[in-house]
């Protein structure tokens, strides 16, 4: 069973995973037993009652009450067990413990933002403490997304005008992949993030130093760091190749043609506006799909990104 479990399901890294997997295995096993039964019946009947002559006479068997009742009632009992079991797991999945640590999640096309209580914002990196319930309160800036951590067996859609939430309690430290599972456009499949599970102390240290470390960095270095940390590279290459957005290479200071025909020099103000209010000016040939970074990046960080972009000539 363990072998099968490893083959079929991702590692169990949250408190709810075991319960969900148990039901998964129950249904799989029962189904396989019944499927084998049905298959054997098909093969056996096909061979045993194969046509011997064109004049075969078959008996008239129109019904059999005992048989019919049993094959209605037994499956009914089985599915009711499955329903109750699934419901119990679901209640567990939706009842958030009171002491849960809260993280705000914002889904944007195509990145995940994680806001912590101290105001720090990480992009595509969720840091959480181990063995402590964590509650994610989620919303979207644009279209529907869905937040999914296979290792934790949790998933919830992220909606534009409402908050939704999910909770989990990680049982071991390490990294787990986060997917977006509600189709959200071009780079839907690149909307990945990683959940980092730390020991409680390590988590606290990380939370204290994560933002502070930036202060010591040189602006260009910080800019490069922010470009990677904020998932800019999902849509903007720095080597000249074309993705969903224009490449960063040679961007600064060049003349840009907008979709309304206007020509603009890409200066500091243009880049700042493109980060904070990205859909005001759209370069010809691209779609207005970039999310706003207002509230994610502060002035110092924007300056650093501009400084970094200047170096990509």
């Amino acid at each position: 069973m363990n072998r099968l479990s490893e083959f079929m399901l991702p590692p169990q890294k949250s408190t709810v995973a075991e319960g969900t997997d148990a039901l998964f295995h129950f249904i799989t096993t029962t189904s396989i037993i019944l499927l084998i039964g049905i298959t054997i019946a098909i093969i056996y009947f096909s061979w045993k009652y194969r046509r011997r002559s064109e004049n075969d006479v078959t008996p008239v068997i129109t019904h059999n009450s005992a048989l019919e009742i049993s094959w209605s009632v037994i499956p009914l009992i089985l599915v009711m067990i499955v329903f109750g079991w699934g419901l119990r797991g679901y209640v567990n999945l939706t009842t958030v413990p009171d002491d849960a640590y809260e993280v705000r999640v914002v889904g944007k096309s195509w990145l995940w933002e994680f806001h912590y209580e101290n105001g720090y914002v990480s992009v595509n990196e969720l840091h959480v403490p181990v063995n402590r319930p964590v509650r994610l309160v989620m919303s979207s800036d644009d279209v529907l997304h869905s937040f999914y951590i296979p290792d934790f067996r949790v998933k919830m859609d992220v909606l534009p005008n409402r908050y939704t939430s999910l909770w989990f309690e990680a049982t071991e430290t390490g990294e787990s992949v986060i997917f977006c599972t509600e189709y959200c456009g071009t780079a839907h499949s690149n909307m990945l993030a990683t959940a980092y599970v730390h020991e409680q102390e390590d988590f606290e240290t990380w939370l204290l130093t994560a933002g502070a470390a930036d202060l010591d960095m040189d602006p260009i270095e910080l800019g490069a760091e922010l470009v990677s940390r904020n998932a800019c590279q999902t849509c903007h290459s720095s080597d000249g190749s074309r993705l969903q957005g224009p490449t960063f290479l040679g961007l600064f200071g060049s003349e840009r043609v907008m979709d309304n025909g206007e020509r603009i020099i890409a200066d500091e103000n243009y880049i700042r506006e493109s980060i904070l209010d990205p859909n005001v000016k759209i370069v010809e040939g691209y779609l207005p799909v970039m999310p706003s970074y207002t509230g994610t990046l502060n002035d110092r960080q924007i300056d650093a990104i501009i400084a970094y972009l200047r170096t990509l000539q």
Binding site: E102, R104, H115, E117, R135, V137, R162, Y163, T164, S165
Partner: peptide, 17 residues
């Protein structure tokens, strides 16, 4: 009737910060 089972009983969480 069944749609109202959803729309009337939604219980949206409120972020604490």
């Amino acid at each position: 009737g069944i749609t109202l089972l959803d729309t009337l009983y939604r219980n949206d969480p409120i972020p604490s910060f």
